[in-house]
Design a protein around this nucleic acid. Structure first.
Lengths: 257, 257
DNA sequence: AGGCGCTTGTGAAGTCGTGCACAAATCGCG
DNA sequence: CGCGATTTGTGCACGACTTCACAAGCGCCT
């Protein structure tokens, strides 16, 4: 609460205030709060209550308050949180005040999509370089960037101060790419390849596996089906009259996500 | 994930081998085990120890044994697990014995990549239909499928027995699409749009947000950077940046890939 | 047949995360 | 200036998950 500087002894004058070491679960939710806050800011809200922000982020309000309390006391009792101030604080804690350079390796199907994903640019990141091992792809231009050969990774990573790498290669190549990223000084990796990477201590790896997400959903489907013996909403039971209110008025063109 | 049915297990006197009520954390790991097991099977392994499989899946061996124990006793003490049998069991529990039909909504940048992603097809799923709200995209052919207008969703979903939907639209359209999916009988949704979806009880939603993953990595980058000048406090010790070693720490077998 | 080494399955303890409930703090108003 | 309405920050209890440690079971070798 009154602890402006968690972490205790920081004898470094002028140094960055030591980051509180947040619970991992909290860290994983902060980006969601941040997105919700940006939405609120755009719709003209100056302050927001924990209840309101929690609803916008899809979590419990008590959890939200506890999460925010971990990074200091930035709310006002009886009023709520100042949206702009909270955005600033979360962006600072997440290290988004600088626009981090990201290297993307593998410009296949998925790599193309990622290279064109506007969400990276608008949320604190800059794709600084694209790489591939296939010579026929080197030189291709995607979203204003030229694909370089993976051999040039170390050189470019150093020049661009790249600390985060994204692997969008086939699984067979992923470990080799990871090794090269680490050798080039990258200390955080986002892996889309369906395999386990082994990296030295001090390097963070996060994994996104699209098939796994579907398989988890499949389990719940299976379970729901095994519990459903009588309910009318059986599979393809017949055309149920759709509620007319669900018109597609809100649908827009599906621009590249 | 949150909306679990309460434990009131009603009736159903021993008919089907009722699905064990697995911990959510276990469910999330089963697909990883499954992938590792397929790798092992392809490289000629007939059996595998918990230690070996755990290494291949990137988890602790005790955790793996406990996970597997939840779905029955399919190991042999002193020997290990029969790879083929375990694959069969996990696929059954995950509901992958049938090839589930999936609807993909939004064929923008990301949607294209997902439609062409081979991993879905090889891991238990069949993309049965593509949808978009943009008339200029309707009719386009992608990976052997014709893009249909979102209006046709209900009809096609019924015809193809689609129970899982994937949303790859801009955030502004996602809620509307989700409503339409639900109205069409879809009970599981994988959402790539950066927003919170509200759905009726009984519908499962999982979310994948690429920018959030990067922001989590960014936090750890920020934290690492702020520690490099501070004394190491805590059990995690200072991250000793072994400069020369580019090879991975573990010498464990790298699971063929 | 019996002992020995290996591996599973699991009780128990420890750690982490969640949600409730409430005191403390702040604002607006009479 | 004090009071009530409102909302934050947090102590505490509970539940979920992880990890350890070990007994029980299995196959092989002698």
């Amino acid at each position: 609460m009154s602890q402006q500087r968690p972490g205790g002894q920081s004898g470094q004058p002028g140094a960055v205030p030591a980051l509180p070491d947040l619970p991992e679960a909290t860290v994983a939710r902060l980006p969601e709060y941040l997105r919700a806050l940006h939405n609120l800011a755009e719709t003209g809200h100056d302050t927001v209550s924990s209840e309101g922000l929690a609803a916008a982020a899809g979590v419990n309000s008590a959890k939200l308050r506890k999460d925010l309390s971990h990074l200091g006391s930035y709310g006002t009792r009886g009023v709520g949180y100042d949206v702009a101030l909270l955005i600033e604080q979360i962006e600072y804690v997440l290290g988004l005040t600088q626009r981090r350079a990201v290297a993307l390796v593998g410009v296949g199907n998925l790599g193309h999509a990622l290279a064109g994903y506007a969400g990276f640019a608008t949320r604190g990141f800059r794709i600084a370089a694209l790489f591939d091992a296939d010579p026929s792809r080197v030189g291709e231009q995607i979203s204003g960037l030229v694909v370089r050969h993976i051999e040039d990774l170390a050189e470019i990573a150093a020049a661009e101060s790249i600390a985060i790498g994204v692997i969008a290669t086939p699984a067979a190549a992923a470990q080799s790419v990871a090794d090269q990223l680490v050798a080039a000084g990258v200390t955080s990796i986002l892996n889309f390849a369906p395999c386990v990477l082994s990296v030295p201590e001090g390097v963070d790896v996060r994994k996104v596996d699209l098939a796994i997400e579907l398989q988890i959903l499949s389990f719940h489907e299976h379970r729901k089906a095994s519990l459903t013996s009588l309910p009318a909403t059986g599979p393809t039971g017949g055309l149920t009259a759709l509620p007319g209110g669900l018109s597609a008025t809100g649908t827009e063109e599906a621009v590249g996500t």
